[in-house]
Design a binder for these strands. Structure first.
Lengths: 335, 335
DNA sequence: TTGTACGCGTTATCAT
DNA sequence: ATGATAACGCGTACAA
């Protein structure tokens, strides 16, 4: 006890110099060779480790940037993280990750807590955007970029996927493959992606001239098991020849359910996922999936953030919205 | 510009009170109703956000704990993260994640940088343990727990898997299924897990009385694609009736390769993975896998760390080593 | 080249 | 109940 970690004061005493000299030597500024040597020797002997918190208080920066996502288990965030990491690293920042378990309160706490100067900036990928989010966003003391939809007029940069067009691509593809009884396993419609995909599905059906049937739509939870159960409920009451799933995780669950029901994919039922994650190439058959540009969204978000932080664009400059184009990757599960 | 974020000083001026009163009100201590009201009103009007860095400098704690892993894309870390998160949350800490991309330098930088008081503690799950790691570990100013092997005598708590016994479980299982030509797709042997599995495989073969054949061993990179290619090379030169893969990711790749080669699983070749991740139940056939207790390892590590931090066990107390037992989950890929 | 002294934003101690 | 003031550990004008 009492062994409270050496500071530059401790070093200064031991080396018989002032704290200013210690600081200078430790930061690589010029000093008399002997001074340098004495300081370094003392620091080494004491096992000195600089206190980054104190340094940050002075410099007003941490060189850390946070990315907060709903759940680190969803591979869609993986592509984002990789791209973000790359951009940030090149700009000299370190990335820290936060998994909020899709919990709104937790997300808000991150926004509040992380924004409190522990990081120089924040990339947020929320499932739901509440008024609480918006309130915190506007008062956040560090720049924030949102991956997802924010209401117009909000003073925050955002990058979003065009999931409506994405759903349309999938439905058109299935239609062209001759499918007419298209089922839909969506996520909760009170989430941003769930709502967007629901609207997209209705619109897409109309585009190709198919009717929207309640019985062919089921709600999962964006996870494998939930997707499997939703597919099970859907198959029990509706006769479908195609299944569109609102993300790849649920599509994986649906594939399993179909196999258990003895339905061949794609002969009996074609399956299409969304997000085009790594998962899509590991299933059998390989999963056709609508890529929503997660890698690109991550990259663009990171670039926007760096731009705000370095001041290339004024902190108070008008918000920018970027829309990323979807792309359909056709694989064995639908042809 | 110049709009530099309000501090308690700004609030004090506006409310016409001292900064001490502001601090007290903001921290919920008792004050005259009028004072309380004036302070809160001023804080609200100014959009005050506390500066956590300054607070940490004073309080010497951040309430954040970091978990550094090689790659968030590997689902084995997922189970760890979930458990760690749960333990930490219950103890009032927030978890931040670091993905080091299996880069030793990056890992060291995290150890150095994160240890610099940005977090109150650190859980590290390294692929390789270098002398650099050990040096940093001993001088880290905050408690560190390692998930993985550290040399005896190092003053650091650790939780490790018994992958040797794990490999043995797998080999015995395959032997009991009548397999005699067991192939092995390992990861790089200069990693801790790779080395342990290699040793385990040799020992396990000896246990059941089978010979170790160079030609039946191939090295991947612990990822899907690397596993697929390694399996491909192996199948090209050796006739095996079973394939043990050093983790589930590579096993997924191996399954794909086998399918491409027209080999039926498990009739022609049985496949066993390691880590027993979520992936194991999403493949077809479902993957038999050796669970190395990642959830338990995460939980135990978090508990050890909290224990050190809260001082229940003195910071300088003797290091503790925990060994977690493996468990074989038999599924369709091997029966 | 080196040392003194101040400020970063908080919390906490001590008078008042 | 409130206010002045001293830390926390570091960087850095400014003076010597």
């Amino acid at each position: 006890m009492g062994e409270d970690g050496p500071t530059i004061v401790t070093i200064a005493e031991r080396a018989g110099v002032s704290i200013a000299s210690v600081s200078r030597v430790l930061n690589g500024q010029s000093a008399r060779p002997e001074t340098t040597e004495r300081v370094l020797a003392a620091a080494d002997a004491l096992g000195y480790v600089p206190n980054a918190v104190a340094r940050s208080l002075k410099s007003r920066r941490t060189n850390h940037i946070a990315f907060a996502m709903a759940d680190i288990g969803n591979p869609v965030y993986l592509a984002m993280v990789r791209e973000i990491q790359q951009v940030l690293r090149a700009a000299g920042y370190r990335l820290v990750l936060h998994s909020t378990d899709a919990d709104v309160d937790d997300e808000l706490e991150v926004l509040r807590g992380l924004g409190q100067r522990y990081v120089d900036g924040l990339i947020l990928c929320p499932l739901r955007v509440t008024s609480g989010h918006l309130a915190e966003l506007t008062r956040a003391p560090v720049p924030v970029v949102v991956i997802g939809s924010v209401p117009d007029g909000q003073p925050v940069d955002s990058v979003r996927a065009d999931s409506r067009t994405g759903v349309s691509l999938a439905v058109r593809h299935l239609y062209e493959q001759g499918r007419r009884r298209i089922g839909f396993v969506n996520g909760p419609v009170d989430t941003v992606p769930g709502a967007a995909r629901d609207a997209g599905f209705r619109a897409a059906l109309a585009e190709v001239g198919l009717a929207y049937e309640e019985s062919r739509v089921e709600i999962g939870d964006f996870y494998v098991e939930g997707g499997a159960r939703a597919a099970d409920r859907l198959l029990a009451r509706a006769d479908v020849d195609a299944l569109l799933c609102a993300n790849d995780l649920m599509a994986v669950g649906a594939l399993r359910t179909l196999r258990e029901h003895g339905r061949d994919v794609p002969a009996d039922v074609a399956v299409v996922g969304m997000d085009d994650t790594d998962l899509a190439t590991t299933t059998w058959p390989p999963l056709t999936s609508v890529g929503l540009g997660s890698a690109e969204r991550g990259r663009r978000a990171a670039e926007l953030l760096i731009d705000r932080i370095t001041g290339a664009t004024a902190r108070a400059g008008s918000p920018r919205q970027i829309l990323v184009r979807p792309r359909l990757a056709v694989r064995g599960s639908s042809r």
